[in-house]
């Protein structure tokens, strides 16, 4: 053998243990106070939404005729409404529904966005032009208009149809970003290298493209949960989303609006939880963005729920 001078000895600073990346991300995450605070709040809200029904003996639909429009008290923690229904039970139930809707919408729309965006960006040509036109077309109308037109038709199908509808109009902007990220990834040398090795295109997408946009997708999906909850409440507020007998934060706000000045507990508990939840989600999203993608901390705009709404 020849005396080959190796560079085998990594200097200490450069050699974190295997899996260093994960640890790096974790340490950054814990360093970001926003993620900690936001995460704790979200966790507590989930506990409240799903554990809440078990700690009160009131049912969200059953009225208590002995207490109509009562302010918060020991028996009715958040008070009661005009029918004598327990506001705590209702809020918890509404929160539950809103959270589920938010999660599902974010999940569906992220999946669609990443598939459409990655395919359009990777294959280019007619596939790209077709998909881009579709995206532009869907962006021409505020999705709110379309959803309001369609949603009366879906009365019978319940809230799942509503989820599909929300997701169907919530993926376009993300898809655009994924598309342009894919286009630049496609020119990167490691993708070129894979192409020259004869790796199948779909495999390249799954193995090289998607993992490299994953940090954006995770962040975006997080923020999309908040956006979906806001859309849900807005549409339900105007009667185009969740309908009775189901309750969501939106329907609760709608029911409580007129009485808010006089009977604030009918309105402000739901409103407060809504803002708290979305705020917590946005804090997590912001922290994730920094932790997962430190190089582009400033480069990427703060994409918060508002832009997907």
């Amino acid at each position: 053998m020849t005396t080959l001078i190796t560079e085998a000895t990594l200097p200490a600073a450069e050699a974190p243990a295997p899996g260093g990346r994960l640890r790096l991300v974790l340490s950054r995450l814990t360093a970001a106070k926003g993620v900690l605070v936001g995460g704790t709040i979200v966790l507590l809200l989930f506990l409240l939404a799903f554990g809440g029904p078990f700690i009160t003996h009131w049912d969200y639909a059953t009225p208590d005729y002995s207490a109509l429009r009562q302010p918060p008290s020991g028996t009715h923690w958040f008070g009661t409404n005009g029918l004598g229904q327990d506001v705590f039970a209702q809020t918890v139930r509404g929160l539950q529904k809103s959270l589920i809707i938010g999660l599902l919408v974010a999940l569906f729309s992220t999946v669609v966005a990443s598939l459409v965006g990655a395919c359009a960006g990777y294959f280019g040509g007619w596939i790209d032009r077709g998909l881009t036109f579709l995206v532009d077309l869907l962006l021409v109308f505020p999705s709110f208009l379309i959803i309001t037109i369609i949603s009366p038709k879906l009365k019978g199908a319940g809230w799942i149809a509503f989820v599909v509808l929300l997701a169907a109009f919530n993926w376009m902007i993300t898809a655009r970003v994924i598309r342009s990220m894919t286009r630049s990834l496609r020119e990167r040398e490691f993708v070129r290298a894979a192409q020259f090795m004869g790796v199948h295109p779909l495999r390249i997408i799954v193995r090289h493209i998607l993992p490299n946009v994953a940090s954006f997708l995770i962040t975006d999906a997080t923020v999309a949960v908040g956006g979906a909850v806001m859309s849900e409440t807005a549409l339900s507020y105007f009667g185009f989303g969740v309908r009775a007998p189901d309750v969501s934060l939106g329907t609760l706000l709608a029911a409580g609006t007129d009485q808010a000045p006089v009977f604030p507990w009918l309105f402000y508990f739901a409103a407060g939880l809504l803002v708290l939840f979305v705020l917590a989600i946005n804090l997590i999203g912001d922290g994730l963005r920094d932790a997962l993608d430190p190089t582009t901390e400033a480069a990427r705009p703060a994409r918060t729920s508002r832009s997907s709404k």
Binding site: G226, M230, T233, A234, Y237, F238, L253, T257, A260, P261, F267, A271, L274, V275, V278, L279, I281, N282, L283, D286, T304, S305, R306, K309
Partner: peptide
């Protein structure tokens, strides 16, 4: 952040209230 977490309709309602 607080503003971004408040849907427009809610913000409007709050202002109105």
């Amino acid at each position: 952040f607080v503003l971004l977490s408040t849907p427009v309709f809610l913000l409007a309602l709050l202002l109105k209230n």
